[in-house]
Every structure is written in C-alpha cells, then in structure tokens.
C-alpha cells in the first residue's frame, strides 16, 4: 500500500492550483466574449479565474490570456507511467554493450514514411552530425545505420528492412495534422506482421507528437518525443534486443 501523494498546480504557494492559459474564441471581443471566456474557464475547473488580457485578433475573433486556480489535483502514487526511459548509456557504453552482449554490428533502418517530407527528426538521430552535441547512429562503430530520408512508402521501408536484415526500424512522423500519422504508423505494423518479421525487430516511432504510450498502443516497442537524443534511442534499441534475444 503506497502512501497517497496529491499535488496541485503550483504558482507561488503549495496547492494554490495556479495555471495560465491562452485561447481564441470565435466571437468579437467585448463584454459577451469576456463572459464566455470566464464561463469556459470555470468549466475547465478554474476557480478565481481572471481575464488578464482580451484583444480582438480579427473580425469575429478574440484572444484571451487567463489565470486561475485549478481545483483538480492528481495522486502521484496512483499514476502508472509508460516510459521508454531506462537508464541511458553513452556513446562508448553503447558500443561496448553491443560488442559484449550481441557480438556483431547491429543494423538500423530509418525513414520518414508516407507523405511526410520533414527529415529533421530522423536526421538528428541517424546522421553522423547528430543532435545536441551527440553523434548520430551513423557514427557508432558497432551500428550500421541507413537513413532512407523522406516520403518513403511503408512497403519500401519493409523491403529495405528485409534486405538489410534490420535489427531495428525507426520511423519518424512530423506531420500529424488531422492525425494522418496514426493510419500510417498502423499500416507499417500490419505490413511487418504480414511479412512475419514484426517479432524479429525493435520497432520505434519518433516525432514531436509521438508519445511512448501512443507508440505502444499502435504496436511499437517505443515512442520518442521532441528533444530525444541519439543515445537515448540507441540505448533503448540495444537493451531491447538483448532482452528479447534478437541478437542471435
């Protein structure tokens, strides 16, 4: 039995519940708009809600900055958190880990799939240059990494994964307007299952709107959001491979 630990949002005193938010309403700025914004804030669970700022943003639209005290709280002891996390290893530790536990170079195939043309995320993880001062996977002596670039059809990614005997497949999705990434990510899982190779690879999704939880729900082994560095991804891949005995 764990002890309950309830917390509220924090402004300048414990449990004051202070939050700030901003939004637009499709109504001209004025007393009616102000009342509407306040009403909305109350429905969102804010007490002592204050409209700090209201301004027209164009015909028929007004913009608000609102402060209030959110009455809701969360019990930390009852939360279950899905996180790909684990402990990160650094560049040298990861290479040593592969050498020691797998004993051969591992193969990683990566792509921005579907119509997505934004490679900035996948480039940060894969390309030599890397991200935030960390080398990308291409630079790892114990990793063979292939970055297929943008707008890669799922079928082409699966074919490349088979050809390269991929141990891990990384998929980047940046454009998520109208949830276009969901069917696209799902299709890849279905194709890997149809090919009978889903269980043989570590399957990872990444992108600004990708959470670990979402990725797992869609049938991926992990999901990585914004700010992820190459070694976080590499650490996950190699540990997962060893855990699932994929290195043989």
């Amino acid at each position: 039995m764990t002890e309950t630990k309830r917390i509220k949002a924090y402004g300048d005193a414990l449990d004051d519940g202070a939050v700030q938010l901003s939004f637009t309403l499709p109504v001209d700025a004025g007393p009616l708009a102000r009342a509407a914004a306040l009403n909305l804030a109350v429905q969102m669970g804010l007490e002592h809600a204050e409209i700090a700022y209201m301004t027209p943003v164009s015909q028929g639209f007004s913009f608000f900055v609102v402060y209030g005290r959110c009455r809701h709280s969360v019990d930390l002891s009852r939360l279950q958190v899905a996180e790909a996390g684990l402990e990160e290893m650094d560049f040298f530790e990861i290479n040593d880990y592969i050498k020691e536990h797998i004993g051969r170079k591992i193969n990683v195939v990566a792509a921005c799939t579907g119509t997505d043309a934004h490679t900035v995320g996948i480039d940060a993880i894969i390309n030599m240059k890397g991200y935030k001062g960390e080398y990308g996977l291409e630079r790892y002596p114990w990793i063979n990494a292939w970055n297929m670039g943008s707008q890669v059809p799922n079928a082409a990614l699966v074919a490349e994964a088979v050809r390269r005997k991929a141990d891990a497949i990384l998929v980047s999705q940046v454009v998520t307007q109208r949830d276009i990434h969901i069917p696209n990510l799902t299709e890849l899982v279905e194709m890997l299952e149809a090919e009978g190779i889903r269980h043989k690879v570590v399957l990872v999704a990444g992108g600004p709107r990708i959470s670990h939880q979402l990725a797992v729900e869609l049938g991926y082994d992990a999901g990585f959001g914004p700010g992820t560095t190459p070694r976080q991804v590499a650490s996950f891949i190699v540990r997962e491979m060893v855990q699932r005995k994929l290195g043989n």
Partner: peptide
C-alpha cells in the same frame, strides 16, 4: 513552431 501548424492566435 515544432508543435503544430499555426493557430490564429499564434499568427496574431
């Protein structure tokens, strides 16, 4: 930027 395509208020 890096979150979503611009909202009306972002542009404002």
């Amino acid at each position: 930027e890096a979150i979503h395509t611009p909202f009306l208020q972002d542009r404002y």
